[in-house]
Write a protein that binds this DNA or RNA. Structure first.
Lengths: 239, 239
DNA sequence: CCAAAAGTGTTCTCGATACACCCATGG
DNA sequence: CCATGGGTGTATCGAGAACACTTTTGG
């Protein structure tokens, strides 16, 4: 029943890569981390930090390794997003790429270009220009995914510093969704979830009444999650 | 800047496959379509209908082709689910698989085994036994995905015949979620969405008051979707 | 004292929940 | 006439939406 081994050999001629979409949030704007390639194809183009997976390397592990090697970033929680396999998306042969994504606090990392990266920086999500390969499409898929999941999971907090103001949190949601939210209702909704803790401090150095700082109570979230709790923030935008 | 071509060649030794998780709903039960393999590895095991992707074949197209070749099913709307790439999941070398899933009306198809399939049948989702490769894990991921997406998208209708009763629809949700729903509230919720149309007929041959038949108004759904509508059915289960 | 953002309370409406009874049909 | 599931109405409660003013600080 076993066909000629050579028949199967014909399938083992492909390569795959991992590409990481790393979201950050800074100065009230959503950003992603891009590297500038120093290798063909697409040398000198901005691209997602990604590279080939080793022959017997686990996919998730490869995503972590590649990110570490190209950016120096460690302990980043990566989640698989989607796999892109348009036939001629890579000039060297058949290459499909498994995209991963993550949300990080920009202040926690100081990415440094290494490996195939000659340069690295955070880019505003709406000013990306031309990217290598089909990376712009990958970013768009990741962004759509982010918009949806931020509604039902408290992932927004992963983008903010450990202590943040309610207005910062609101700006984050507004920035991701591209909508305006109503201040009072947003606050009531968020606080009624009982997921934020007042850290007892206030903003410093602002030319107006300083805002209270909050932190996300992760333990509380896990409890609520078990009970079948459904985190959700809606637009509530002005009509 | 371009390393030796042979360096890259070392990456082009992998293969990838597509595997399809096809959900159906029949006799009030959720089912999936499995084939029995006649080829090593895992000859005689039940498995998802899946096979190798051709060297320069598009992933989505491959999923469709493989499904057609193994089951005879055409015009099935497949959606990419997740990619599985544990290093030694396939005995012949490095093989990663891109899983797709779909919801179909069982009555619309009469699957016939062909190619690597020596047999094919619908299996109850909770009586799968041992499957080839990591296919059980794939099914579990697909099922979790189904549970979530049926909450926010009207995909349940894809599993039902063109005309169905409200009780059938309710049983579908109960079967997918494994919970009980409250009849009146379920009906009120569903009907208030204005997505169902009374087709003006009733059930035949039942030993009780026959139920009205409804159809899903797809056009209406598209309109609501554009306006930012959020389809959602909650448990509402008895406490 | 002014600018600028923080912070708060109330009303209205609508949807979610909970609950019990009558209806139409086949056998 | 009875067993079986189909089908409905109502009261209560809580959350979402809409809306305007006072508070605190730095400069």
């Amino acid at each position: 029943m076993l066909p000629d081994k050579r028949y199967f050999d014909s399938f083992f001629k492909s390569a795959f890569t991992v590409d990481n979409v790393i979201f950050g949030f800074d100065e009230g704007k959503l950003k992603i981390l891009l590297i500038r390639r120093n290798e063909e194809p697409y040398a000198d183009y901005w691209a997602l930090p990604g590279y080939f997976v080793q022959q017997y390397e686990d996919l998730d592990a490869a995503a972590e390794r590649v990110l570490r090697e190209m950016t120096g970033m460690e302990n980043v929680y990566l989640e698989q997003l989607h796999t892109f396999g348009t036939p001629y998306r890579h000039a060297f042969g058949r290459v499909i790429t498994v995209a991963y994504y993550s949300l990080v606090k920009i202040a926690d990392f100081r990415p440094r270009a290494a490996g195939v990266a000659q340069d690295i920086t955070w880019h505003l999500i709406d000013e990306l220009g031309v990217l290598a390969f089909d990376h712009l499409e990958i970013v768009q898929v990741a962004l759509e995914h982010l918009k949806k999941s931020i509604r039902t999971r408290p992932i927004g907090f992963e983008l903010l510093p450990p202590a943040f103001t309610l207005t910062e949190l609101q700006h984050l949601y507004e920035s991701v969704w591209g909508t305006e939210l109503e201040k009072r209702n947003f606050r009531k909704k968020i606080l009624s979830m009982d997921l934020l803790r007042d850290v007892g401090k206030v903003q410093k150095g602002v030319a107006h009444r300083p805002a209270k700082l909050y932190r996300f109570d992760e333990q509380r979230y896990r409890e609520l999650e078990k009970e079948g709790f459904n985190f959700e923030v809606r637009d509530g935008g002005k009509k």
